[in-house]
């Protein structure tokens, strides 16, 4: 197992109270596997990723429980110095907004090369050669001529390629991509996703793909974890989840995508709003919006029920959800 997150809990202490962003998340990724983490904004998917990378702002954030096992080692017990050696070299992250994640006053080549200078101790000249190689690898055309260009001289798709190159630089074992295509046009989205999937296969990396877009993940993910209010509500191989979701929230998400055979009809919409993280409803957090909710849902927090060998669902009535 490459990465195994167990019962992770994160909270943020703010002036207005304690926001429980992550409440016992479990997921795992193996080498060469793609896990898609799906959820609306505020569901805790990015916070979990930041905790894994060790880039959570602390304070106000606080990890209050759980383990993050990376290649068998609990990252939460390591010193900052040791974590820094892992970060970049063994695990790397691709951020959503490439323009604000790149330094505007340094050339792209300098930023890519920095990885090699810091982690591998290469000279500036060798680092630059490496940077060109990387840009070639992510198919930035005319890499040699563009290595000295600045981020603003690249288009959105090309900038995202630079981000991917940066994450790949030290050939990490795990890459976390946080909404890598959200800011891009549809046509470019597909290009970037394909590139990412291809590089992952080539390098046999584990990939965690964070997104709120069900469409993006269908083609590339092996399994999907759906998050709601800081918990995983469903964990399943990608085929099965699209065929028959085992949680009413997943079903709601799938049904709210417009489909051809429903044109002219009202779209299915999950009623209500995501919960306030400072005041998560008792029992199942989804119960106020759930069509299947009963008394039990308002009092008992559902455990992760085993639907099949490779599948879990945090719904008391998962059987009903599955056959709805």
């Amino acid at each position: 197992m490459l990465l195994d997150v167990r019962d992770l809990e994160v909270e943020f202490r703010t002036r207005d109270g304690v926001a429980k962003a992550v409440n016992g998340v479990n997921y795992s990724v193996e080498a060469g596997q793609t896990l898609a983490v799906l959820g609306e904004s505020g569901s805790g998917k990015s916070v979990t990723a930041q905790a894994v990378m060790g880039i959570l702002d602390m304070p106000p954030g606080r990890i209050t429980g759980g383990q993050i096992l990376f290649q068998g080692q609990d990252l939460l017990t390591l010193k900052e110095e040791e974590r820094r050696r892992i970060r970049g070299a063994k695990m790397a992250m691709i951020f959503q907004d490439a323009l604000s994640s790149l330094n505007p006053v340094l050339s792209v080549g300098a930023q890519l090369g920095e990885m090699f200078e810091v982690h591998r101790g290469l000279s500036r000249k060798d680092a630059r050669t490496k940077a060109v190689e990387l840009m070639d690898r992510v198919r930035i055309p005319a890499a040699k001529d563009r290595v000295g260009d600045y981020p603003h001289q690249f288009s959105g798709g090309m900038r995202q390629r630079v981000m991917i190159a940066m994450a790949l630089a030290l050939e990490p074992d795990l890459i976390i991509a946080d909404e890598p295509t959200t800011a891009l046009d549809v046509t470019v989205q597909a290009q970037v996703m394909d590139l990412l999937a291809e590089l992952q296969r080539e390098l046999d990396m584990g990939l965690i793909l964070i997104t709120h877009d069900l469409g993006v993940v269908a083609d590339v993910a092996d399994k999907i974890a759906v998050m709601y209010a800081g918990r995983i509500v469903e964990n399943a191989p990608v085929h099965e989840i699209y065929k028959a979701p085992a949680h009413p929230y997943t079903r709601g998400l799938l049904d709210s995508i417009p489909r051809l055979d429903q044109k002219g009809q009202e779209l299915y919409a999950i009623k209500g709003l995501p919960p306030n993280l400072m005041n998560i409803p008792p029992g199942c957090a989804f119960n106020p919006r759930c069509p299947l909710a009963r008394d039990m849902c308002r009092t008992d927090v559902p455990p992760l029920y085993e639907v099949s060998e490779s599948r879990t669902s945090a719904c008391h009535f998962w059987q009903e959800a599955l056959h709805a």
Binding site: Q189, L214, V238, I257, L260
Partner: peptide, 19 residues
């Protein structure tokens, strides 16, 4: 490209991912 370039379980083939 644009019509099918839109990712995912597209019109006509809902919940049918994969290559």
């Amino acid at each position: 490209g644009a019509a099918v370039g839109g990712p995912g379980p597209g019109p006509g083939s809902p919940r049918q991912p994969r290559a």
